[in-house]
Write a protein that binds this DNA or RNA. Structure first.
Length: 419
RNA sequence: GUGAGUGUAGCUCAACUGGCUAGAGCGUGGGACUGUGGCUCCUAAGGUUGCGGGUUCGAUCCCCGUCACUCACCCCA
């Protein structure tokens, strides 16, 4: 095991790349502000039991969790998703009894023990939204609009939004039964995985990518046909609102989602250039989850949006964010004048100038070379002559012209030149 | 967890069918009027060829193992 290598499925973001992340995060905060969502920050680990409640047929909790015992013997788990913790916090702080809806967003790292591949890391970053307390279709529509707005504003094109409805406690059992009735006589045509799913979670057969399964499913019953009256109205309402907002979408009865807690509306947003892991955002309504986690019956909607995949899409799409602007001033000095140079440096910084200074003990020539390489707009030379006259030689690196400026005027001089 | 591919300098890549001190470009350091960058030129540093074993007179190259990375499956953001 190499200590000079990060753990599998993790990555370092170096300053140059971090600039992209900063833009991505700034944008998400501004969109959330406009939509009136507040940020919630929950711990990165939770009691393992919290995630176990998410459902035993969900791979995310059964085989992909980073679970460990702490020194007190408690079983804790690095969060694999954001909804469970948000719900926990919502209940823990008694917000169910307060003003509803509660509209939250979160950003941060999630952890899943999986085989890494493009767009899938063991530690990855997710941006998520949760609306607690609202059963209205406006909540579903708003959440979807927020995701689309954000992705569009950050610069993505070629997005595909697909929506579906999985029904509720009342009508889902009917669909499940219909699906099993359809699948059982065709069981031998399904792939091995789907034969297992048939018992545990037949809905998953719907989105199997195996060719023969797809062929079988071409004539399978659609969940939309089994929807009860209220669910149908709700789904139609969501679509109407999306249309009213000018958001284009496609109804895809095959969208199922991997977390088991979804009810009614589910949706996915994918990006064409992403390869196998093309889903950049996925979410839906989960009207039963809060109750299952020990709260009163409370409707809710939300989504998770993969920021690593978003950054990947931006790269693939060649979006340039024009981030490398260099610095305003680089202070260059001769041996023996370090104090004067450093004093000027701090004056520059105090006045808002982006400034840096030589600290490698290089020759004046090498310092100038360095100033040029790091794209300094000005090199400010402090040497014997300058100190004697109380000035600094300010060299405009682009124009190749220089002049002597009284030391005390240099910050103002640079600031105005950089406007 | 399964499958396939790939591991040579900080980065991108060379090295005929196994054969001399493993090379180049970029990048980095120093220099070409000892107070001035960009272009050009010179020069230096930097590799246990992922690691361990095997075959061979000889392995970067062939074989086995191992680790890592990449892509895909599963699943998901």
């Amino acid at each position: 095991m190499l200590v000079t290598r990060g753990p599998r499925g993790t990555q370092d973001t170096l300053p140059e790349d971090a600039l992209v992340w900063q833009v991505v995060e700034d944008k998400l905060r501004s969109v959330c502000r406009r939509y009136n969502y507040g940020e919630v920050r929950t711990p990165i680990f939770e009691h393992t039991e919290l995630f176990l409640r998410l459902g035993e047929s969900t791979d995310v909790v059964t085989k992909e969790m980073y679970t460990f015992l702490d020194k007190g013997g408690r079983s804790l788990t690095l969060r694999p998703e954001g909804t469970a913790a948000a719900v926990r916090a919502f209940l823990q702080h008694g917000l169910v009894n307060g003003q509803l809806p509660v509209k939250w967003y979160y950003v941060g790292p999630m952890f899943r023990y999986e085989r890494p591949q493009s767009g899938r890391m063991r530690q990855f970053s997710q941006f998520g939204i949760e609306v607690f307390g609202a059963a209205d279709e406006a909540a579903d529509a708003e959440v979807i609009c927020l995701a689309i707005d954000y992705l569009t504003e950050v610069g993505l094109t070629g997005l595909k939004l697909e929506i579906n409805s999985l029904g509720c406690r009342e009508c889902r059992p009917a669909f499940r039964a219909a699906l099993i009735d359809f699948l059982e006589p065709r069981e031998n045509l399904l792939c091995e995985d789907c034969r297992g799913r048939l018992q545990r979670n037949p809905l998953r057969v719907l989105d199997c990518k195996n060719e023969s399964c797809k062929a079988v499913m071409a004539n399978a019953p659609s969940p939309l046909d089994s929807l009860c009256g209220t669910c149908r109205d709700h789904f139609e309402g969501v679509q109407a609102l999306l249309k009213a907002a000018g958001v284009s979408f496609e109804v895809n009865p095959r969208i199922v989602r991997g977390l088991d807690y979804y009810t009614r509306t589910v949706f996915e947003i994918s990006h064409e250039k992403l390869g196998a892991q093309a889903t950049v955002c996925g979410g839906g309504r989960y009207d039963n989850l809060i109750e299952e986690l020990g709260g009163p019956p409370t409707p809710a909607v939300g989504f998770g949006l993969g920021l690593d995949r978003l950054v990947l899409s931006l790269k693939e799409q060649g979006v340039q964010l024009d981030l490398d602007r260099g610095i305003d001033a680089y202070v260059v000095y001769q041996p023996g004048y370090g104090e004067e140079a450093f004093k000027l440096l701090q004056k520059l910084r105090a006045s808002g100038v982006v400034a840096d200074i030589e600290m490698m003990g290089r020759s004046l020539k090498a310092q100038m070379k360095h100033a040029s390489k790091i794209k300094a707009a000005f090199a400010i030379i402090i040497g014997e002559r300058e100190v004697k006259n109380g000035v600094g030689t300010v060299r405009d690196m682009q124009a190749g012209e220089q002049q002597e400026v009284p030391i005390s005027d240099i910050p103002r001089f640079v600031r105005e030149a950089r406007k």
